[in-house]
Design a protein around this nucleic acid. Structure first.
Length: 427
RNA sequence: GGAGGGUUGGCAGAGCGGUAAUGCAGCGGCUUGCUAAGCCGUGACGGUUAAUUGCCGUCCACAGGUUCGAAUCCUGUACCCUCCGCCA
């Protein structure tokens, strides 16, 4: 959420952000400003009447009970007037608040303007994509022949996009997640096991609602299942006032993620690439309200994710996302795309964003700076590792010509095998 | 699921129909050679304003209600604690 006074003083900039983020259909800045003006006008009327009522009440309390009736009658009249304006004020405030929730943040200056993913810029590529001479299998073929993946029974039990990981596959998934957690512990982040069921206000607070409501599973008590641990992690300090000396706050968590993938019908329907349920280690950082510092952390968090991929020796590239392909609340975003040999393409495995105070205003997370002033923290988040998608990348990149898959060096300490061999019998 | 208690400013903690004590911390200032000291000021949010140490309004978990007036009385909701029941 932006500050209404910022919007009013920078209305052209804000309008440009709405336009560049392709959100022109969801919010009108002119209408927002007009509503706020109306709200202020009513607020003044209400406050004048409240002041009058307070004055009368005060005089009543100073007069002997038997002499109060005239004053009480006068106060009762004011009360009626006040109620009228208060009603209008509340109505207007509701409209205003709702409009405010749809205003996106303003992208950083170095974010390319673009309509969709075609406007994204490749920042750099790491690792060699020149694999071995044989034709690589995709992760589904590998998973089935190695008996580590069962999609048929996954669909039987879980429905469309359901899956079972099995044997070494299930173990290797845990190995990747453990590897990712250990990496973040070394970096000094605090590990949290987080709520997976979360109240709607925190989806709004992190900026997933109202835009992404359709992509979340709602529960009968109106809570929803998280699509990422970011929601719980970023909300952790909501409503609280931190001390500048505690910042930056570095958190990470491992959780399942639930996504309806409502806008992705027919996309990536094969295998364990796009799922309704997966596991993810996520990093969240809260910093002081300083653009340079938050940008430094943005790069640093990117490097943590890159170190995961470098450690796994997976080829990847860094993408700077354009205005049309980033979230409403995001100020700047990098995606990491990992190489999938069977697709001959890089595919998204990580997403690294910073928000300035967009989330902290919605969540009301402030800190007292060294001069005693209260400010909103700046928030950031990035993937550390998401499985099974990253597992699929490992399987494809580590396959051998005989159909076996070698365990990456860094994962060996987490499993009791060095190689996954094809099984003769498929059950 | 049942019974009871609770939720007040960063923290602690009074107030229980007349408009938020006090202590600690933080921040600002003053004083002082005995100093892990003393004194003074300082809650948050919003409006007004060129800007305010000014003025006005709001805030005692949240949402309603009663009243001239609500932290205080009533209703509902959320969360926390204790006990019982059930249970991985």
């Amino acid at each position: 959420m932006l500050d209404i006074n910022f919007i009013k003083n920078n209305s052209e900039l804000t309008k440009k952000a709405v336009e560049n983020k392709q959100l022109g259909k969801t919010v009108s800045i002119d209408k927002l400003i007009e509503t706020h003006d109306r709200y202020l006008d009513l607020l003044k009327k209400v406050e004048i009447h409240r002041a009058l009522r307070n004055k009368l009440s005060e005089s009543i309390s100073k007069v002997a009970p038997q002499d109060r009736s005239d004053l009480i009658n006068e106060a009762t009249a004011v009360k009626g007037e006040l109620a009228k304006y208060e009603h209008e004020l509340v109505e207007t405030k509701i409209v205003f608040d709702r409009l405010m929730l749809w205003v996106p943040s303003v992208p950083a200056e170095d974010v390319p303007v673009g309509i969709d993913e075609s406007g994204n810029k490749v920042v750099r590529e790491e690792g060699s994509i020149n694999g071995p001479a044989f034709k690589p299998k995709d992760h589904v073929d590998l998973g089935v022949s190695l008996d580590i993946l069962d999609l048929e029974r996954g669909a039987k039990i879980g429905g469309f996009r359901g899956y079972f990981l099995k044997n070494e596959g299930a173990q290797l998934e845990q190995a990747i997640l453990r590897y990712a957690c250990d990496m973040m512990l070394v970096e000094g982040y605090t590990m949290l096991s987080v709520p997976w069921i979360v109240k709607p206000e925190f989806f709004t607070g992190t900026g997933y609602f109202p835009w992404g409501e359709d992509d979340h599973y709602r529960l009968e008590d109106d809570k929803a299942l998280i699509g990422t641990a970011e929601v719980s992690l970023t909300s952790y300090y909501s409503g609280e006032i931190l001390n500048e000396s505690e910042l930056p706050m570095r958190l990470f968590g491992l959780s399942p993620c639930f996504r309806k993938e409502i806008g992705a019908y027919g996309k990536d329907t094969k295998g364990i690439f796009r799922l309704h349920q997966f596991n993810k280690v996520e990093q969240v950082v809260l910093t002081t309200a300083n653009e340079e510092i938050t940008r430094e952390w943005h790069e640093k968090m990117l490097s943590h994710a890159e170190n995961i991929l470098k450690g796994l020796k997976l080829p990847y590239r860094v993408l700077l996302m354009c205005t049309g392909d980033m979230g409403a609340g995001q100020v700047k975003k990098y995606d990491l795309e990992t190489w999938f040999p069977s697709q001959g393409n890089y595919r998204e495995t990580h997403s690294d964003s910073y928000f300035r105070d967009f989330q902290s205003r919605r969540l009301n997370i402030r800190y007292r700076d060294f001069s005693g002033e209260l400010k909103y923290v700046y928030t950031l988040n990035n993937t550390v590792a998401a499985t099974p998608r990253l597992l699929a990348a490992v399987l494809e990149n580590y396959q051998n010509v005989d159909g076996s898959v070698t365990v990456p060096e860094v994962l060996k300490k987490y499993v009791s095998f060095d190689k996954i061999l094809p099984k003769q019998k498929i059950i």
